[in-house]
Design a protein around this nucleic acid. Structure first.
Lengths: 68, 68
DNA sequence: TATAAATGTAAAGTTTATTTTACTTTTTGT
DNA sequence: ACAAAAAGTAAAATAAACTTTACATTTATA
């Protein structure tokens, strides 16, 4: 799964810690997701959607591996 | 977290087993999500988004409990 | 260029998502 | 009404998300 978190976060000039606090997870979780180590829960994706004012589909996309 | 899976699935006249097969999870997972027992991963939410041709934000919504 | 802030990373632990098996209840079709 | 299909449920197991602590590296700034 791909994502624009790093870009969107830069757009809002937020640090990983800022974002983590805003969506209620640890800084490491944000970091891991940005590094593509794993994907978020849908609840977290929706919270990020709120913060960035972008749909989950705009923030996250399936890549080849995820398409079946 | 709330969702319209049951509705959307009805719209496409699919059974829980059909849907499960199409998105690559077990029938019980679809059932549990429809019953609100837990939320899906973002990967699964995106796959459901594909099947129903609806955005993740249209399919799933945060409720009071999830808003902080 | 030194220091602070931000980011990356890793291991061990907890919680939540998902599977499998199996059974019960409800709905649909004849 | 009966049989078959679909949906609901539950327990035990595994996998994935997330936390905490701790430290190393990179980037920004005085």
């Amino acid at each position: 799964m791909q994502n624009n978190l790093k870009m969107e976060r830069a757009r809002l000039k937020m640090t990983q810690a800022d974002l983590a606090a805003k969506v209620g997870v640890s800084r490491q979780t944000i970091n891991a997701i940005e590094q593509g180590k794993y994907g978020p829960s849908t609840i977290l994706a929706l919270r990020l959607s709120l913060v960035f004012d972008k749909s989950v589909n705009e923030l996250f996309a399936l890549d080849e591996d995820d398409l079946n």
